[in-house]
Write a protein that binds this DNA or RNA. Structure first.
Length: 287
DNA sequence: ACCTTTATTCCGAACGTACC
DNA sequence: GGTACGTTCGGAATAAAGGT
């Protein structure tokens, strides 16, 4: 995770972008300053698009619906319609590859919530070369108007996807970010994240239960993965056998070389002796 | 101006919770 | 552990709105 952002959501009336450092984000502030709300609006909502109240709140209460974060609390009527965006940008380590996933939400008072999810896959980045709003001049003032779903779709074009169903959004995130073979494994991961963030963790979960959750959240190995592994092991076996064979051949060759050296030395000495003898005979004959 | 998209409504399914 | 209940979600159908 590289950046997370909120636009026109809750108390964020403008674009607010949080930069992660090395995949980590530290939020610091006094009680009630909004650390939890900011966090719970990003995770796990942006992983699977589910916005039900018990998913938002780490304590599992159903006090606030996602609409309340857009429109304000029930008794405070300050607006009747609001469109907001949440997004999360991922960066591939040591590259300049970016993928952004996000959701748009339109809330209207006494009406149901409209949801759409999107993903940017063509390396465009929100706040740099992609924007979730357009400018409108209102009484001489420049105002940021959040894009409607249709407008967002047109701006994304071929550089990504826009979906209207939460399930489709979840599938997109899994496909482009996590890559679990089946969606059930991805669901397990999110379930794990939610259970691990529960403040009642130590009270409600025995270690054996934690073990089961962790085990269930692991993606099962595919035949493809296993084939790579067995191929590698097989070739390792083959290479080892080749090395042993080569070593046997080398000791054999060394033996031959040793004998051949001796033989060559003998031949050399012999030839040298013959040469000397012949030379001596030549000298004697000349005398 | 046309055609596509969006909004609305309804209903069944699924999920989570409370209670026994 | 089972049941009842309430809430939310998703799909279908249709009317209305909006973009090209």
């Amino acid at each position: 995770m590289n950046r997370a952002g909120l636009f026109n959501f809750w108390y964020y009336n403008d674009e607010e972008i949080f930069h992660f450092s090395d995949g980590k984000l530290l939020l610091r502030g006094s009680n009630g300053s909004g650390k939890s709300v900011t966090m719970q609006s990003i995770l796990p909502v942006l992983l699977d698009g589910k916005t039900s109240p018990d998913r938002l709140d780490p304590f599992g209460s159903k006090a606030r619906k996602i609409e309340d974060y857009l429109l304000g609390e029930k008794d405070i009527v300050d607006r009747d319609e609001r469109t907001g965006y949440l997004f999360l940008e991922y960066k591939r380590e040591n590259t300049n590859q970016y993928i952004t996933t996000g959701i748009g939400l339109q809330a209207r008072r006494y009406k149901s919530l409209n949801f759409w999810g999107f993903i940017l896959t063509d390396n465009r980045r929100i706040g740099k070369d992609f924007f979730l709003y357009e400018y409108e001049y209102h009484a001489g003032e420049k105002q940021k108007i959040p894009l409607s779903r249709r407008q967002l779709e047109n701006r994304i074009g071929d550089g990504g996807h826009v979906v209207t169903k939460r399930g489709d959004y979840r599938n997109l995130v899994n496909k482009y970010i996590f890559g679990f073979e089946n969606i059930e494994a991805y669901d397990e991961l999110i379930k794990l994240l939610i259970q691990l963030r529960s403040p009642k963790l130590s009270k409600d979960f025995k270690p054996t239960v934690i073990y089961e959750i962790l085990e269930a959240s692991l993606p099962p190995l595919t035949d493809e993965d296993l084939r790579h592994l067995s191929d590698t092991i097989e070739s390792m076996d083959q290479t080892k056998q080749q090395i042993e064979q080569l070593e046997r051949e080398r000791t054999a060759l060394e033996k031959i070389v040793k004998r051949y050296d001796l033989y060559n030395q003998y031949r050399l000495a012999n030839t040298a002796e013959q040469y000397l003898n012949t030379k001596r005979k030549v000298t004697e004959t000349e005398k």
